[in-house]
Write a protein that binds this DNA or RNA. Structure first.
Lengths: 180, 180
DNA sequence: CCTTAACTTCACAAATTTCTGAAAGAAGCG
DNA sequence: CGCTTCTTTCAGAAATTTGTGAAGTTAAGG
């Protein structure tokens, strides 16, 4: 595990002779990090382009990039960036902001992206619950199926509750340990 | 919301004149439930065939079906069933069992499928953590990027811990409210 | 052992998804 | 207002994913 997959290739990287901790601008290495992490998000079910855009933002200095910058770094068309951003803002993982005095737009990762992302997960859970509830009603609680589906439903209701308090705890933990 | 999407179509269903709660054998309705729920799982990132197979098992009387039964109900080839089962057993959502005195195999949903499924999610989280850790090391904690990625990493470490205790609580809750 | 039922694997066809290029649409700025 | 710069939309090309049919493998039962 942890074999430093993306950090030591050669292509695109100009070795600036830095010691490890200061290699913050090595475009090749950054790119490998972006692609490695994005690939994992894809594996977990996220679509590729949004994943790449999201991680690129995460690994950018200010947490903000323009469409052109994203397109160049990821080697994709403006259209692809546009589509990815549309998705990411729908699920509340980035915000758009107009650069004042320009028609260039900038996209920003939210500070609490994951909080937001998980909150959205919640909406999905609710839809599942609705479907399962219908299943339980159809089969009836006295059938094995109804019983089984109900147990699943109960688990998700439980999860929903837990999520709430978990997020509360995260806020506290964060304030305590990662105060900005 | 909750508009009973799958329950009142006509095709394939022979209305047995039952009152609502006893409609346990209406193949058309069962099928619609299976497809509706499976579709939602797909939306959430699961692949189609495993989702369909999983829900079919969930909605089956015994929670057990043979390959042939699955193929017939879902109208797919044995090959497709085989692939889906391979995946589902890899992620611990079904088990296979040989029907004694026969070469027919039976597939069973586990009682605590979701517990299992989430435990697997854990493995994915770990991989994410490894990647992020490398990112933090590369950028360094004194860069904005390093700081940002570290916060994400911390969140996932937090999540992992919470998951553990959450599952404990679920076991307790389940024992209390859903005793078998 | 041989037969045969059941499951699995694999190459390929079909369907779907993803990205692009081109054209249309906004919005700043003269 | 119109020019220019950036963004979005959309039809379709390219790539990927998914499911099939057919051949291959395994194991029960004679």
């Amino acid at each position: 595990m942890s074999e430093r997959r993306w950090e030591d290739g050669r292509d695109e990287s100009r070795d600036t002779g830095h010691e490890h901790g200061s290699g913050r601008d090595d475009a090749g290495t950054v790119s490998r990090f972006v692609e490695a992490f994005a690939a994992q998000l894809v594996e977990a079910g996220m679509t590729r382009m949004p994943a790449r855009v999201f991680v690129a933002l995460l690994a950018s200095e200010k947490g903000v990039l323009s469409s052109a910058e994203l397109g160049e770094q990821l080697k994709v068309s403006p259209a692809a960036v546009s589509g990815a951003i549309r998705y990411l803002s729908q699920v509340n993982m980035v915000t758009r902001e107009r650069e004042p005095g320009s028609r260039r737009e900038r996209y920003r990762v939210l500070d609490n992206q994951w909080y937001e992302a998980l909150t959205n997960r919640d909406v999905i859970l609710r839809r599942w619950q609705a479907t399962m509830r219908e299943g339980v009603e159809f089969f009836g609680l006295d059938t094995p199926q109804g019983h089984r589906i109900n147990e699943t439903l109960q688990f998700f209701l439980f999860l929903e509750e837990e999520f709430g308090s978990m997020m509360e705890r995260w806020k506290v933990y964060r304030a305590k340990h990662l105060l900005d």
